[in-house]
Write a protein that binds this DNA or RNA. Structure first.
Lengths: 337, 337
DNA sequence: TTGAAAGCGCTAACAT
DNA sequence: ATGTTAGCGCTTTCAA
């Protein structure tokens, strides 16, 4: 059943039907009566326009590209869920992909977004794809970053206050009397990881303390990561507190503690960036910096939808850089035993 | 840059270019030389065919619809990740959506899959959408179920041995001397949940014991679920062991224990269906039935890809019902203190 | 107010 | 072996 069939059956032209379908009946001064008749008929036969034909004609696909680091990561999958909710409500579908922070994969996906003509995209960008993203933007694609951003690229983004969050956490440990505070993170040049690292270094150096830093090469095999953490802990027995910069660092860190027989809180204080059930239920419970996931997701999709709608009217408004706040979930792991 | 432009610039016809692009040069006996020239040119200008135009013409979109219960659920997001990997390798993109086991939402998504002309779909179906899915299948859409299936619908599916897994777990508790074993699950008519419940009931009844059953109305608000579990535990103080039928039951169950001051292992033994870091790191560690997530995902996408390819040749081969096996992760929570 | 027709980019039947 | 052309279903300009 196509628009032509409808036109035939009602003995009118495709044009008229199309105008009515696109809510331009009034504008085109089509008689109320005819509009009613057409709408009635469309409902009767349950006609739905073919979105592919629409896309070919209009250049719009009503599809959003969502590019995360890894959809299996609870942070990103939670983000995906909230984005899905809002996007579908606005008539958009979502194509997702996981970059693993891999440059080549990312570039392939960016090409795919362009080829497939997605209307816009929401991206947690790895470093090193600046020029590709820039040319996407130059080609007119609305792009929103989240979780991190690329400083060279001028576009909307949503990020948390990474620097302040970790700085504050570090200062709290210092205030609680911890002397030798380690920071376990992943080797990364992404803005959010750099922010967290800087927050730690600033706080530690401000008190004249020595920083103890482990930058793990990210590895999907958790055994390798645990091994790296164990090595670091063994070679720095003086540590009385440690901050984990991300959820995988935190959970693998706890496993490393367990394997080494290190007792959290008693032997070593802990604060983790990102929160989860594990941290709440662990004994002792783990102090965590929780991100406002829903707010991040909603802001990202809102920013994108705004761009998608505004296309009709004017051109570019200034790009929004949103920094949203984390919350410290104060638990037992960061309190003197 | 379209196929027409290429044809013009090379002074040949669109057809020739199209045949070459679609690897039918040999079949159409196009000269090696011309093929080379065209391929060279295409590489030079980095031409990519417009997938939307292709879709309109061929009716194929190279898009797979993935319908899960909730993409934010770690089980489903892990599944999504593995499916993504394989699908992209075969040139398919994925549109995902979360049903929340809601019938109306599901039907909307099914319509969307049809309207959008996805080439096939992978679905964790809620109950009550049998006729809609059947008509989708009748319309020629390849459908693969996973995690659960709809008994009335004849199609490929992948599921774990739910019944045996829980039966075995229950028997293990019995053998370990536990007398009053409870089962905490969600009210659901889905095949996987029914299987687990039956496994429990069968094992308990076989020994003449009384079943203690809590069927929680699934509620996104975890406070409500915890409350339900607490109520059940309080009204059944005789329980010395409990089996959780799903991950949300397990984690919320642990929270309920904690709030009630019940000590796992000392006061009550625990086995949980589904595994996670929390269960491994909890003190005491929680015995869990882990699903072979990668195998489930790979089987599902393999089954679908097979259907998608076979379309070309013959019609229907018999539908595959795959039952894959869970693994019992034996830990401390199910062992007498 | 409504209709005819071009054209989005592609594939493939048919013609040469 | 290569070219011409219809048509997938839609939107929109132009004409009536």
């Amino acid at each position: 059943m196509s628009i032509g069939d409808i036109a035939n059956q009602l003995n009118i032209s495709k044009t008229t039907v199309s105008f009515i379908l696109n809510n331009r009946a009034q504008e085109m001064r089509i008689s109320e009566q005819l509009v009613k008749r057409v709408e009635q008929f469309i409902k009767e036969v349950d006609y739905k326009p073919n979105p592919i034909a629409q896309s070919l004609r209009t250049g719009k696909t009503k599809i959003i590209g969502l590019m995360v680091e890894n959809i299996a990561d609870p942070f990103f999958s939670a983000i995906a869920r909230h984005i899905e909710n809002k996007a579908y409500k606005s008539g958009y579908k979502i194509i997702y992909c996981s970059t693993d922070n891999d440059r080549d994969k990312t570039i392939e996906f960016l090409d795919m977004f362009k080829d497939r003509n997605v209307d816009g995209c929401i991206i947690a960008p790895p470093a090193g794809v600046e020029s590709e993203i820039q040319s996407l933007i130059n080609a007119g694609m609305p792009v929103v970053f989240f979780d991190r951003h690329l400083p060279e690229i001028e576009t909307d983004f949503v990020e948390v206050n990474n620097y302040e969050s970790i700085q504050k956490a570090t200062n709290m440990l210092i205030k609680n009397g911890y002397q030798q505070i380690g920071f376990i993170t992943f080797a990364s040049s992404q803005s959010q990881m750099m922010g967290r690292l800087e927050g730690y270094l600033t706080a530690v150096k401000a008190t004249g303390r020595q920083p103890y830093l482990l930058e793990i090469q990210f590895n999907p095999d958790e055994k390798v990561m645990i091994q790296a953490i164990k090595g670091f802990l063994k070679s720095h027995p003086q540590l009385d507190a440690v901050i984990f910069s991300a959820i995988q660092a935190g959970t693998n860190g706890l496993k490393a503690f367990q394997q080494l027989g290190l007792r959290v809180q008693t032997d070593i204080a802990v604060i983790a960036f990102d929160d989860c059930d594990l941290f709440e239920l662990y004994a002792p419970s783990i102090t965590a910096i929780s991100q406002p996931i829903e707010q991040i997701a909603e802001s990202a999709i809102d920013l994108l939808l705004k761009r998608l709608n505004q296309h009709k009217k004017t051109k570019t408004t200034a790009h929004k850089k949103m920094i949203v706040k984390t919350t410290m979930q104060l638990r037992n792991s960061s309190i003197r035993h």
